[in-house]
Design a protein around this nucleic acid. Sequence first.
RNA 1: GAGGCCGUAGCUCAGCUGGUAGAGCAACAGACUUUUAAUCUGUUGGUCCUGGGUUCGAUCCCCAGCGGCCUCACCA
Length: 507
Amino acid sequence: MLSDHPQFTERHNRLEKWRALGVDPFGQRCDGLMSAADARALHVDGTPHEGAENAKVAGRIMLLRDIGKLIFITIQDSSGRLQIGLTKQLLAAEWDKAKLLELGDIAWFAGKVGHTNTGEVTIWATAFGLSTKALLPLPDKFHGLTDTELRYRQRYLDLAANPESMATFQSRSGMIAEIRSFLHARKFIEVETPMMQSMPGGAAARPFLTHHNALDIDLYMRVSPELFLKRLLVGGMERVFEINRNFRNEGIDTRHNPEFTMLELYEAYSDLAGMMELTETLVATLAKKEAQRSGQIGDAVVLPYGERRINYTAPFMRVAYGELFATHVGVDMKDASAVRAAAHKHGLANTGGKDADVLRGELFEHLAEPSLKEFDRPVFVYDYPAGLCPLTRRKPGDPSLAERFELYVAGMELANAYTELNDPMVQYETFSSQLAGLPDHESMARMDHDFVTALCHGMPPAGGLGIGIDRLIMLLTNSTSIRDVVLFPLLRPAPRPAADDPSAPIA
RNA sequence: GAGGCCGUAGCUCAGCUGGUAGAGCAACAGACUUUUAAUCUGUUGGUCCUGGGUUCGAUCCCCAGCGGCCUCACCA
């Protein structure tokens, strides 16, 4: 049984009626189509009721009003919706087929673009055909699909029935194209580095483990492309970027999906300041395009996000890590004993065994980071404690600080950038001390000898930047859950229907 | 991993101090040549998430499980 849906049989009967009329219900190629939006644009002031220009469109039947010898159908394609009028008078011999069309079917229509008595732009069909018979019905034609679980599990229904969802993913695609074109204009080249790695590095995150049969080795899904992209700097690719998936075996919530898309880029001879300029320009540019798309005019770029409105007009705010720390923890970050006392006071466990910078990081996360969601502008936080950033160059004149910033928008970490560390000896020692002090899953990075070797050959001074693409899309499309900007977010597998044989082999 | 909320027809949702369920849309039969979520007449459709318990009786109360959402924890 293909489907136990209660309407499947009725629709299958309808399919047989099409066959009886000599029509292949799973159609074929259709030439000369235009989009519904383009067809609509053929209707201008002065166009007569019955129309002047010819158009041919195809799409899914979303609404159908059968008034006897006249049928109004609203089709939807990726450009939007358009009304088709089918009359017995114009279609004569094809009328039996017109009466067979039903909601959810995919069909094409050709005719002149006119309008109805009430002014609705309408193609008065003189020819049409079934492109694909739908054997299952669409969700409620008015309410769409609201069940969040079904929206994620059956995204095709969400896209077909909920125009806002389609719009979000169209925006996503457009924004990623913008990012590529922005970087190409700045002479970056796009590369792809391994997603399956024998040693996961570049970020302190739990990896997924998998296995290669022929080589009989375990492999990790990457948590970051960083160490490979830097090898490319050593090789002479001076400006590289990758937009691709990272995989982190951690919790799932509104801001985290186990696989997520990162933009990571490296620019030789640049530094943290260069990355800040690039980030600010890129994010402000994208926000401006989105604001224009939604009809905003003028120089200010303000986009809604949940309950608040974020102003993306450059320059963004800039605040030193230590400044936020002093304000919210109430202690000078450089005063190690005061930091330890503060950690103890705020009940952080095992204060004794931890590195002082780890304590600083924890205090910051608990006390300072929450305040970042109060800002209605993007804010760069810079000058991080060096111990939290093993792949980052120290600040000239203050080795306790690292040349790093994070960009926070609406309290979300959106971007992370560094002046990259390129001293192989410092790198080696940092790796070593990180591995010695902490359990594996907490270590900031694992020892990667080949990476150290690469640095020995010389990596140019560089700035590096990572931007969480999903989060960026969330902010710009006003989506408060990452699952609304990831087409197929990870869910627990749906329970297997009882009728299925649980021992059936998986293809 | 912890807490809160939720799960009723294909979809969107009502309902009940405990007495085995309703509406709209969709579907089916019919009417209709200018509709706009078309309208009108008639009809079909339910493991009230699953399994226990309490009770004369559970969709409703209790416990456990499954799934989802939210908050927190985890988290370059």
